[in-house]
């Protein structure tokens, strides 16, 4: 027996979804891109970054956690929603120290790519210039918390995929940060370069050592096409 399907609309276009799928999953399969930062296909979605905010029947929801409902009207690429996303991404920039000009993740960075996609040319909020620390103690992995956007991917990947719980959030509000085994350095943990957690950072906060700028300008992931192009190519 075939799976039960439902139908809903994104920006007026009919989308088919399997029962139990989130709006994000159904949209991805249908070739409709919803911007996202904390969501990663292989990890449990937790709707923390809010970049995938959509309006479902007039109410703001995160597309990565909200189930698709039969007959729902979803607003994705409207001026209002894009404005909300722009502000969220903008705040992520000014709350950290994101210096794209010398960041090795530049061109492969999802935050930078979302900003380009949302046409953010310069931040509209004032920079906070927080004092954040670096951790170079691990032989193969480097942490630069200046660039962390608290997406939680590393926390989830280490816990759910690697079974190691190397990372966790500590602190609240503007003091919140990703800590390593409470208050240790990465070099004190059993994290390995082959761990999923070493591969999931959307920005340049967790990087593999000595890779640096090995990929030349022009060959980086988002040099040619904007983020989301792979999903949109399915439509």
């Amino acid at each position: 027996m075939s799976e039960k399907m439902i139908t809903f609309k994104i920006d007026g276009v009919e989308i088919k979804a399997k029962v139990g799928q989130t709006i994000m999953q159904a949209a991805d399969e249908a070739g409709v891109y919803i911007p996202r930062l904390c969501y990663l296909k292989d990890l449990t979605p937790h709707g923390s970054c809010r970049v995938c905010t959509v309006k479902v029947n007039g109410r703001c929801q995160t597309a990565c956690t909200e189930p698709a409902v039969d007959g729902a009207e979803v607003e994705n690429k409207t001026e209002e929603i894009e404005g909300i996303r722009r502000d969220i991404v903008d705040m992520l920039f000014v709350e950290g120290n994101h210096f794209c000009m010398f960041c090795e993740k530049s061109g492969n960075c999802e935050l930078q790519a979302e900003a380009y996609r949302l046409s953010i040319c310069a931040p509209k909020f004032p920079y906070l210039f927080p004092a954040r620390d670096l951790d170079g103690t691990h032989p193969d992995i480097f942490i630069d918390r200046n660039r962390c956007i608290l997406c939680g991917r590393c926390v989830n990947a280490s816990r759910d995929v690697d079974g190691k719980t190397v990372f966790e959030f500590v602190g609240r509000g503007s003091e919140k940060k990703v800590a390593v085994n409470a208050d240790a350095n990465l070099g004190d943990t059993n994290m390995a370069i082959t761990d999923k957690a070493a591969d999931v950072c959307p920005v340049g906060a967790i990087i593999k050592k000595r890779v640096g700028f090995a990929v030349p300008v022009g060959k980086r992931i988002y040099d040619e096409k904007p983020i989301g192009s792979d999903i949109e190519a399915k439509s």
Partner: peptide, 14 residues
């Protein structure tokens, strides 16, 4: 100071 060494050629040219 504090930056990883492989980043320096790109950083310092600024």
């Amino acid at each position: 100071v504090g930056r990883p060494y492989w980043e320096v050629p790109v950083l310092v040219q600024r």
